[in-house]
Design a binder for these strands. Structure first.
Lengths: 204, 204
DNA sequence: GTCTATATATGGATAGAC
DNA sequence: GTCTATCCATATATAGAC
């Protein structure tokens, strides 16, 4: 670490980055303040100077991860864009950001179990879920799609979200390196666009 | 709880079931022995009579979950079954078992992160992954499918596995009860069969 | 703002009566 | 085989010197 005079904000940023790494790997219960302090290169008790306790540190980190996930989701989608276009835009934006941070997805999935109230807020503050779900419903009404909006929706988030959440599982199933995995995800973006087109064609 | 004379095995079964519930929910680090004991209806310290410590209890439970996942996977698939049939049979068998135990899927996903070596064994002992992957490759060679076997494979496990791993997330996104979720998963089985048929048709 | 020392809380493990 | 009491380790949190 380079010795310079750091502002409080800078030190906090270093701590949060260290904490993020440990929390994503070990979870809230499994993370040790010692490990976070080591990772940040400061004394363990100094952590308390910046963040009163573990939970507040977790919340600080979490609310940033939270923002990061939001950034993956294009909320400027126009109202009367065709469903196909909505899905394609969503996918591109999501992939662009998720490839950089695939660890966040599994973390989120776990948070939905352990802190459902918090996650409900994330969803509610940001009505993309309802927007896409309703777009599916409209599309069914228009006769572009058959069947059930919920099932289509589940399929869509499965093929986009899961490959990131299951990063480690996929690597081991395909017996490939991390680099190979990243390659697969890069080419998966185009694959999904094709998948969306076929999904609509085959339903007619 | 009904008071009868229990054999050691029976008591162990009760403890493991209680422990399973708590471990799946909280993970190894987050689980409290007190909670497991309460759930099992015995004293906290009595746990130690049956299992020396937390880790041994965890391993006992884990090795059973391990068996349970194996049961979901039909390994008696015939060699020259058509890919479409392989996928349909796999899906039916998987859903039949996963609906009863959707919690296991997220647990597994996490284990692939925290204990990759163990999980690799699970995969290797049971070559279903390679079998399906190769079936995709053969199908591409035969001209039934276009594109990349790995991408098709990832899509297939995404649409089958993810809806269980993301149980809580889906419930909150769709703002539905647990019963509604189970209903969706029951009807999803047929949806997936349709999905598989369309997947092949649209590729021609 | 960081360190040493120390307090406190929690939870896991053991001993021994019954 | 279960309970009470107790111990001990770990990890979080605080106080106060520097």
């Amino acid at each position: 670490m380079i010795l310079t005079t750091q502002t409080r904000k800078e030190t906090e940023a270093i701590i949060k980055q260290a904490a993020r790494k440990v929390f994503l790997q070990k979870g809230l219960a499994g993370a040790r303040l010692q490990e976070i302090a080591d990772e940040a290169g400061i004394g363990r008790t100094s952590l308390h100077y910046y963040y009163k306790n573990k939970e507040m540190l977790f919340n600080a980190v979490f609310s940033e991860n939270f923002q990061e996930i939001k950034k993956r989701i294009p909320y400027q989608l126009e109202e009367n864009l065709a469903l196909k276009e909505i899905l394609i835009q969503f996918t591109k934006e999501y992939f662009r950001n998720a490839i950089k941070n695939p660890d966040l997805d599994l973390f989120l999935l776990n948070e939905f179990c352990s802190h459902p109230e918090l996650m409900l807020n994330l969803i509610k503050g940001h009505e993309i879920t309802q927007f896409i779900l309703q777009a599916f419903e409209k599309s069914i009404q228009k006769g572009e799609l058959k069947g059930n909006a919920q099932q289509h929706f589940i399929t869509f988030i499965s093929v986009t979200f899961f490959p990131f959440a299951a990063k480690n599982m996929i690597q081991q199933m395909l017996q490939c390196s991390e680099n190979d995995y990243i390659q697969y995800m890069h080419s998966r973006e185009d694959y999904i666009v094709g998948f969306i087109h076929q999904y609509f064609n085959s339903q007619l």
